[in-house]
C-alpha cells in the first residue's frame, strides 16, 4: 500500500478494505471464484489478477489469470489482498503461496479446511506478519468503498449502508442480518467483517476492535457473539485495558445452548457448548468491562442510539 500520510488521513474511513484496495483471487476460474469476481467488479473493486495453476493466460470477466501468485504480482504489481476461493484440500497450499508473497491480508473464504492445515497457515502467517481473515469467512465490506469476499452477495446495497458503526460476526448471514437491522434503524456501517466460525481463526474480535479504535469514522462497534471460544472475553479485556475506548455493543446468540450437554457442537465448528468460556462467564466479563449487552437482537439499534445519539 504505497500512500503518503496525507492521503491516508483523508481516505481512512474504514478498516481492512477501502476503494484503493487491490485484490487478487486464488481459484478465480472455479464456480464461486467466477461468481465473486463479477460481484466485486460490480461493486467497483479493483480485482487486478486471478490465479489458477494451469489456466494462466485466460481471463475471467476481463481479469487476467496467472499460474502462480508470484507470476501475477510480477505482471500486475503489488496487491493488498489475496482471496482464497479454492477447494478445501487445496486451501493450505494456496494460502501459503500468498503468505510467501507477503500479501498483507489473506482472506480465506473456504469452508471445511482441515484444522491442521489451518494451524500451518496461521503459524506461517504469524512468522511473516501477514493477517489472515478466516477460514470460512464471508469477507468484509466497507459500504460505498469496497469489499472483499462474498459479503452482501450480488446485492450488498440491499442490506449495507455507509456510516459510523463497525460490525463483527463469525457468521456471514448474521453480518447481513445486522447490516439490515442497523441500516433500517438509520445508521450506516464503516466496515462489516465476517471472521468465520471455525475452531481456529486468523482474525479475532479483539484484532478488529484494535483496528476500529484507530479508524476515525467508526463511532461504535457491534459484535454478534456466539457459543464457544473466548473471543468475547478477549474483547472485554481490551476495554478494561483501555485499548478499546469506543462503545461496544454485544449480542450473544445461543443462550438456549447452555441447557444442552457440555461439548455439544452447534452450527459453526467453533461453537461448542462450554468450550473455553460459558455464556454466563461471557455476560459477566463483558458487563463488568462496560460493554453494552443487547438482550435481544431487536434492541441493538436502541443501544446504538444510546451510545452515540
Amino acid at each position: 500500500m504505497e500512500r503518503n500520510n496525507f492521503e491516508l488521513l483523508i481516505i481512512s474511513m474504514a478498516i481492512l478494505v477501502d476503494r484503493e484496495t487491490r485484490v487478487l483471487i486464488q481459484g478465480i476460474t472455479g464456480r464461486s471464484g467466477v461468481q465473486v469476481t463479477s460481484e466485486l467488479l460490480d461493486y467497483g473493486v479493483k480485482v487486478v489478477a486471478g490465479v489458477t495453476p494451469g489456466k494462466g493466460g485466460q481471463e475471467v470477466d476481463t481479469v487476467p489469470v496467472f499460474n502462480s501468485v508470484s507470476e501475477a504480482i510480477k505482471t500486475v504489481g503489488e496487491v493488498d489482498v489475496a482471496m482464497v476461493y479454492v477447494p478445501p484440500l487445496l486451501a493450505r497450499t494456496a494460502a501459503m503461496e500468498a503468505i510467501e508473497a507477503k500479501i498483507a491480508l489473506i482472506h480465506i473464504f473456504v469452508e471445511k479446511m482441515p484444522i491442521f492445515d489451518v494451524c500451518q497457515v496461521l503459524s506461517l502467517a504469524a512468522k511473516n506478519q501477514v493477517r489472515v481473515l478466516g477460514p470460512a469467512s464471508v469477507g468484509a465490506i466497507s459500504p460505498g468503498e469496497g469489499k472483499i469476499g462474498s459479503i452482501g452477495g450480488p446485492a450488498p446495497d440491499n442490506v449495507f449502508s455507509k456510516g459510523p458503526i463497525g460490525i463483527i460476526s463469525r457468521s456471514g448471514g448474521m453480518c447481513s442480518e445486522l447490516g439490515l437491522l442497523i441500516t433500517n434503524s438509520g445508521f450506516g456501517q464503516s466496515t462489516v467483517v465476517g471472521i468465520g466460525g471455525d475452531l481456529l481463526s486468523g482474525t479475532s474480535y479483539a484484532d478488529l476492535l484494535l483496528e476500529f479504535e484507530k479508524d476515525s469514522h467508526t463511532r461504535a462497534v457491534v459484535i454478534f457473539g456466539e457459543v464457544g471460544g473466548s473471543g468475547e472475553i478477549e474483547a472485554a479485556k481490551l476495554i478494561t485495558d483501555r485499548k478499546f475506548t469506543k462503545p461496544l455493543i454485544v449480542f450473544l446468540a445461543g443462550k438456549f445452548a447452555e441447557k444442552l450437554p457440555r461439548d455439544t457442537s452447534l452450527g459453526h465448528a467453533g461453537a461448542i457448548v462450554g468450550l473455553e468460556a460459558t455464556m454466563q462467564q461471557k455476560i459477566k466479563v463483558l458487563k463488568e468491562a462496560g460493554a453494552l449487552l443487547a438482550e435481544n437482537f431487536k434492541k441493538i439499534p436502541d443501544l446504538i442510539k444510546k451510545a452515540i445519539g
Binding site: 464461486s32 461468481q35 464471508v138 452477495g153 440491499n158 442490506v159 457468521s171 456471514g172 447481513s176 447490516g179
Partner: peptide, 8 residues
C-alpha cells in the same frame, strides 16, 4: 429460518 444469505 435463516439470516439474509450472502452467497447461498
Amino acid at each position: 429460518a435463516g439470516a439474509v444469505a450472502n452467497f447461498t
